[in-house]
Amino acid sequence: LQTLTLFVVAGELHSYSEVCEALSTLEVALGFLAMTGGEPHMQLSCYLEEVLQMGNQMAQHILKALSMCCLKHCVALWQLLTSLKSESMLRLKRDPFLEVSEKYKQALGEDEHRLLTGFFSKSSADTFLLEMHEFLVLVLNKPNAPETYRPDWLKDTLVSYMERKDMDIPPDVEELFPEEICLSHYVEAWKFIVLFKQERTQ
């Protein structure tokens, strides 16, 4: 999904409940697509209305937000909506990462704050933030994650995760992301970057 589309979709969903509704609708669609497949270029809203007959169960503005995407964008949209859900929970002072091991939740010091601020002042945070969040919810929230992903790793772990998905790693991530930030700081680093991004866009 293009970054502009991500911003527009995010802008259509104003509250935690709307994000959750859009996400649960998308997950229904993904479940059916996994079983039956679909035409990649079909508009997601058409699929929901015509194939799944869900049009009358959804708020119109949520349908409108989802109409900006085709079926081939569903996974990217899931990535966006799960991240928006976590960001909304942060704003509501709720913890989106209760199941993540404490080993990945160490507080950041002033040096780490400075390094992260420097990195995200120079680079486009959005795609990388989404990848960070996906890795957090799909990988690090598993009970045995610390056995596989040592808390003193980070950058190489995330880069190799993105490479396994055949993604192009943004050059500024490889060159500029601070080596000093470890997996032990992962949750707090993600939260800090989200808050930094929110302040920058206000």
Score class of each variant (00 low, 15 high):
Asn56Glu: 02
Leu115Trp: 12
Ser123Trp: 08
Met68Val: 04
Met132Arg: 02
Val51Gln: 12
Gln60Ser: 15
Gln53Asp: 12
Gly31Ser: 15
Leu48Glu: 09
Ala29Gly: 05
Tyr47Ile: 03
Ser24Tyr: 07
Pro40Met: 00
Pro143Glu: 15
Val19Leu: 00
His73Trp: 05
Lys72Tyr: 07
Met54Trp: 05
Asp156Trp: 08
Asp95Lys: 00
Leu108Asp: 15
Cys74Glu: 02
Trp153Lys: 13
Phe120Cys: 07
Glu87Val: 04
Thr127Cys: 03
Ala34Phe: 03
Ala76Glu: 14
Cys69Leu: 05
Phe32Glu: 01
Thr157Ser: 13
Phe119Thr: 10
Ser123Cys: 15
Val51Cys: 09
Arg114His: 15
Arg114Trp: 07
Gln79Trp: 04
Leu140Trp: 10
His41Trp: 00
Glu102Ala: 13
Lys142Asp: 11
Gly109Cys: 12
Leu92His: 04
Leu129Val: 09
Trp78Gly: 08
Gly38Leu: 02
Gln60Lys: 12
Thr127Val: 10
Leu52Asn: 09
Phe97Gln: 03
Ile62Thr: 08
Met58Cys: 05
Ala76Gln: 14
Lys142Ser: 10
Ala59Tyr: 03
Met54Ala: 10
Glu131Pro: 04
Lys155Arg: 14
Val139Arg: 08
Asn141Asp: 14
Leu44Tyr: 03
Leu138Ser: 05
His61Cys: 03
Ser83Cys: 15
Val100Cys: 12
Gln57Ala: 06
Lys142His: 11
Gln106Val: 12
Leu84Cys: 13
Pro143Leu: 00
Ser45Gln: 06
Cys74Tyr: 01
Cys70Ala: 14
Leu108Gln: 12
Thr82Ile: 03
Lys103Arg: 09
Val51Trp: 08
Lys122Thr: 14
Ala34Pro: 02
Thr157Asn: 06
Arg114Tyr: 13
Lys155Glu: 10
Gly118Arg: 12
Val51Leu: 01
Gln53Ala: 10
